[in-house]
């Protein structure tokens, strides 16, 4: 479904991704792990079209998308839950969600809205509140709900568990695992490698802008390099 081929990307003149290749098949949950500053967020931005690539290709459904503007990629079915949630703070919960369906027909919005409020009842109780006043966990749910409002086929999640209490982490990751049943394909960036490997089919390890290791989650969980570097075993 998503194929990234030898992608190079830079901030100004500093090259951050040095030729990353990665693939996500339809219906898969794939994790991307790696330490701080490895370039995980950068890769997510390149996939969504926020940041241009300087070399390489991105294919979505076998079509090149790397020259398309970000809003067209959303319309094609790629949504992102960005790092640090990035909710529209001054706007209400309801408006945040409705804006998530910006590329859809108005007729589909209210049905999608019901679905999100069912998935996250805590948001339904606070639909008129400003998003900026929500707790961290609620903001994370809102960011996820907002991305789901576009009815994506590919969902990019950038550290959804960052800064959340362990119960909430479990709840968020459960939700992610359940999305697969609705036919959503997932690329998940996580620093919580244990949790990421537990729900993913496969994983890639990114280090300073290069993929250094890839394999099934079970194989990686047993890999001595992973156990030492990321699981602290």
């Amino acid at each position: 479904m998503l194929r990234i081929e030898d992608v190079v990307s830079c901030y100004g003149r500093i090259e951050v991704l040095h030729g990353v290749s990665l693939e996500v098949g339809a219906g898969e949950i794939v994790s991307l792990v790696g330490s701080n500053g490895a370039g995980k967020t950068t890769l997510m931005r390149v996939i969504s079209g926020i940041l241009p690539l300087t070399r390489g290709r991105i294919l979505f459904d076998d079509q090149p998308i790397d020259r398309l503007p970000a809003h067209v990629r959303v319309a094609r079915g790629i949504a992102q839950v960005p790092e640090a949630r990035q909710v529209f703070g001054p706007l209400s919960v309801d408006d945040n969600l409705r804006l998530g369906a910006f590329r859809r027909h108005a007729a589909d919005t209210s049905r999608a809205l019901d679905r999100i409020y069912n998935l996250f009842p805590a948001l339904a109780e606070r639909r008129a509140q400003s998003a900026g006043n929500l707790s961290g966990g609620q903001q994370q749910m809102l960011a996820m709900g907002r991305a789901l409002m576009s009815d994506p086929r590919l969902l990019l999640l950038d550290e959804p568990s960052m800064g959340l209490a362990p119960v909430l982490v479990d709840q968020i990751l459960d939700t992610v695992a359940n999305l697969r049943k609705d036919g959503v394909t997932i690329l998940l960036v996580e620093q919580n490698v244990n949790a990421a490997l537990a729900i993913a089919d496969r994983a890639y390890v990114l280090e300073t802008g290069r993929i250094v290791l890839t394999g099934s989650s079970t194989a990686l969980a047993d890999d001595p390099r992973i156990r030492e570097a990321y699981l602290g075993l």
Partner: peptide, 14 residues
């Protein structure tokens, strides 16, 4: 309003 509040997120919702 969304663009004013958070340009990155605005682009990400399309």
């Amino acid at each position: 309003l969304a663009t004013a509040a958070n340009r990155l997120a605005a682009r990400l919702v399309g």
